[in-house]
Design a protein around this nucleic acid. Structure first.
Lengths: 186, 186
DNA sequence: TGTACATCAGTGAACGCGCGTTCACTGATGTAC
DNA sequence: TGTACATCAGTGAACGCGCGTTCACTGATGTAC
């Protein structure tokens, strides 16, 4: 089976795409290479033509998930876009679809307890924080956006863990309105 | 080997104690029953005299970790105690010792993606939120303490995942000071 | 244009390992007589 | 006080399974002549 010159690169991309979705949905430990390759119509033996190990795939998938998050939530250009970003991040849709969502709530906890070799988390935190330094908040202390990010990540994490749907919605709504109107918090 | 009448109950407690530490440190999937029992000086076969399944142990350990968190951070009686609670929760010590810490940052993500059968998360969220409704914040909207909890859980999660120690400390400090002085946030 | 060969993405069987779970058994102790 | 027996927490070998990884092989295609 000889393929076109970029066939291998495309297969590699397909593996990363499927893996980055599964890692976010089921966790790294919960995702097996055999079912992963099978879902792509391939056999598991071929995996090692593309990656040296599962860890290498984790690294590549995390970077890909980060890139996807940066595209989904680009740098806001004004305060309206900033609030739209926050609303989208804290939406029930994002809560209910971790496989397409931000890797921070889905993968941080797992990579935090394993001694992750990558510093992709650092980069994602940094760039997501930058995106929150928008418009009318620019006069705020620089940690303000870090607090907002922590609240957003915590809200999604808790909203996914809580069983009661009303309580879950309430967590998202509370953080959404707190970031929307921080001056009325006290 | 016949033992004193409460020997079995004590062994059960020891299993739960060790498990609740390991689950928080290494995750549920990352904790095997064989090494767990071995660490207690027992063989793995005896496990099923105490629990019907690993899932039953997860349930019991989560409840135990929650109870431990409620004891470590009891209901604050005034605003000083409330700030001490927040400072303790957001301390480097808590970040660096997940095995003795709050189960929300360590276990929520993992139990969130598996369809957890327990509603212990709901209870922990509810009771930790109550503890943040202290003193001078009582006039604030009720969601205020929910936002604080989300920020605290998110901060610990991120601080554990980030590689750069300075960045990790910064996340904790930012949320700490934001909760300490919410009126100066804007 | 036609043949022989090299390439290499993907195949599929096999590996050792640790997992959760089962089960026949052990043996020190409390109880019955 | 002494013996026979029942109890039952814990033992340890075994189970089937899925995991990550290895490796000899396949076979359609591009290239060389």
């Amino acid at each position: 089976m000889r393929y076109s010159s970029n066939h291998k690169a495309e297969t590699r991309k397909r593996i990363i795409g499927e893996a980055s979705r599964r890692f976010r949905k089921d966790g790294v430990e919960g995702t097996g290479l055999v079912p992963l390759m099978k879902a792509l119509g391939l056999t598991h033996g071929g995996f090692y033509a593309h990656f040296a190990s599962k860890d290498a795939l984790v690294e590549a998938s995390l970077a890909s998930a980060a890139e996807q998050a940066f595209e989904r939530w680009p740098e806001p250009r004004d305060s309206d876009e900033l609030l739209a970003f926050v609303a989208s991040y804290l939406s029930p849709e994002h809560r209910d679809n971790p496989d397409e969502g931000c890797p921070l709530p889905s993968l941080c906890a797992e990579l935090g307890l394993r001694g992750s070799p990558s510093d992709t988390s650092d980069i994602v935190v940094q760039r997501m924080t930058q995106r929150l330094e928008g418009a009318e908040l620019r006069s705020a202390p620089p940690e303000r956006s870090l607090v907002a990010l922590a609240a957003m990540v915590g809200a999604i994490t808790l909203a996914r863990a809580v069983k009661d749907p009303a309580a879950s919605d309430q967590i998202l709504a509370a953080v959404r309105s707190a970031i929307r109107a921080p001056s009325q918090e006290t």
